[in-house]
Amino acid sequence: MFLQTLVTGLGIGSIYALMAMGYCLVFSILNFSNFAHGAMIMIGAYVGYLFCSIIGIPFFLSIIITAVITGILSVINERLAYRSLRERNAPSLYLIITAMGISIMLENLVYSTIGSNFYAYPRVFSKNYLEIFSSTIGLIDIYSFFVSIICIILLHLFLNNSKIGMAIRAGVADPIATSLMGANFNVLIRNVFFLSGIFAGISGVFMGLRYMVYPQMGWITNKAYIAAVIGGLGSLPGAIIGGFILGIIETIVSVYISSVVRDVFSFSMLILILLLKPLGLFGIKYEEKM
């Protein structure tokens, strides 16, 4: 029973981690919480459903196509909605409000075009459960865990070994000095939004597969936002660990206490961590040296 709970927790946690990474990437470089990320995850779930169920492409191929599509949508979102604000040096608050607006707009766009029906993904795996040590382990948990781990490793390699990755890390610490090096900040931002869109698409497909696909599903991703805050907004390792902690605690609370109080626990934990460590578990503030 405990093993099963733990694996489910890791499975859900890995999706939270993936979603939190998308929040975190944008926050770390632009210093605002991109609440349109939730809507992008919802669109990812629909796009994945389209390929997987209606067109009938194999599951893992659908994930890849979905990731590319949401990546591009996320870049378009930045170009149309955020860039002009950035170029006028608008305060972060304006960007946050714009992001919320985008999120509401996309949600209603789906309502008015596709409708408010709930859709369920088809059976994508031949077997849904594995029997290990007399526990039933959900295959979806295992797949989502491994897909997330692969994404985390690829992101890590990209940020640490590519020139653009290095410039993105530099831009996180000091955008102006990064521009002085000759980096085009808009190109860096485009890359960041593409990555965040990719993670939105992948996590959207897994969310849709685990639960259902419906217009307001983006709001579930508030949990991912909690995960990012717990870990320390702007810290990637923080987002990942925050995601896993949240997933495991939620599952344990649902199983051993009651699923009714699950969210009470998540939000209480958020408040407690912010009271004790206002920057989150891994939040960093760079200080300049004189």
């Binding site: 410039a167 890390r169 000091d174 102006i176 000095a177 990064t178 300049e288 040296k289």
Partner: peptide, 16 residues
């Protein structure tokens, strides 16, 4: 005020 990249190594700072 220098504005080096505190989160990048010395080598990476130079490569930037």
């Amino acid at each position: 005020r220098r504005r080096i990249f505190p989160n990048l190594t010395v080598n990476e700072n130079l490569k930037m």
